[in-house]
Nucleic acid binder design. Structure first.
Lengths: 141, 141
DNA sequence: CCAATTCCTAGTGGACTACTAGAGTTTCCA
DNA sequence: TGGAAACTCTAGTAGTCCACTAGGAATTGG
């Protein structure tokens, strides 16, 4: 999420190398590289190989939701396995609690799909200006 | 949750022994006994020791929410550690994503606190009106 | 060619989780 | 009073998941 946020802040035009993202966000570049693979396969980012390469978002920040990112990296969003994968629990049939988790899952997805990368950028902009009155934050998105 | 649901269906008056709950719900009685300890400490159930003993709910099913049960057994409800325990992550300060998880946590708690054991009983009754739970459950909704 | 960069595959240490197990303690019933 | 039925406390375990590390191959620009 932090990497995608970083890309949303910068990579509108030129590809951003993993190393730069990693340094700014305080993460390991090796680990980040790994995380970008599923993001690329999900079509959220495009990769440019070779020198001066890096990653670029394929859509505008306000067209990528937190839910999109999470699904790409972690698979189906669900509070418990049996909701997304009925075979995960032997007690599935007639389980009273399953309905709870399904309802919960729906609400969770609702929340996560409603927040976009652009929202994050806006929030971060207001927070970082911090001490001053957050009047007009100019963010292109 | 399944055990608490079982108690809600039956244990309005007489204490229900762990073994009975375990058999009906297809769980290990040893394991269940372990889970009841935090539930008792949280004041959700009362234990009656000795022969003919067992567990009883301390409140009516419609006064115990799924959230209450979860908090008692698993601790604070939270999608990630850093929300309930700021010391859990070194990147806490100025982390962009933390706001997401906080918002999400609030919604999750909202959902879980809105569902009561009585709701579960009602749902289960509608799903399969077998010979189970006849007459004893007050459907007040 | 060389350096920068992505890409692929495998491994690892720590934490969590559902569950098992042993050895008590308390209480009820006969 | 004896004993069984029940809870209580403390450890341990096997499996899984997760964040992260690591080595090296492929690709591209200069």
């Amino acid at each position: 999420m932090m990497a995608m946020f970083d890309l949303a802040l910068r990579g509108e035009r030129e590809p951003v190398p993993i190393k730069a993202v990693a340094e700014r966000q305080g993460l390991s570049d090796r680990y980040l590289g790994q995380l970008f693979t599923p993001l690329r396969k999900a079509g959220l980012v495009r990769s440019v190989r070779g020198a001066q390469g890096g990653y670029v978002l394929t859509r505008k920040p306000d067209e990528i939701s937190v839910g999109d990112v999470l699904r790409a990296v972690e698979g189906p969003i669900s509070p418990v396995h049996c909701v997304s994968d009925p075979g995960a629990c032997a007690r599935v049939d007639g389980c009273v609690t399953r309905g709870i988790w399904r309802k919960l899952r729906d609400r969770i997805v609702e929340v996560l799909d409603a927040i976009t990368l652009a929202d994050l950028c806006e929030e971060a902009g207001q927070e970082q200006i911090g001490g001053k009155a957050p009047g007009g934050v100019d963010h292109h998105a």
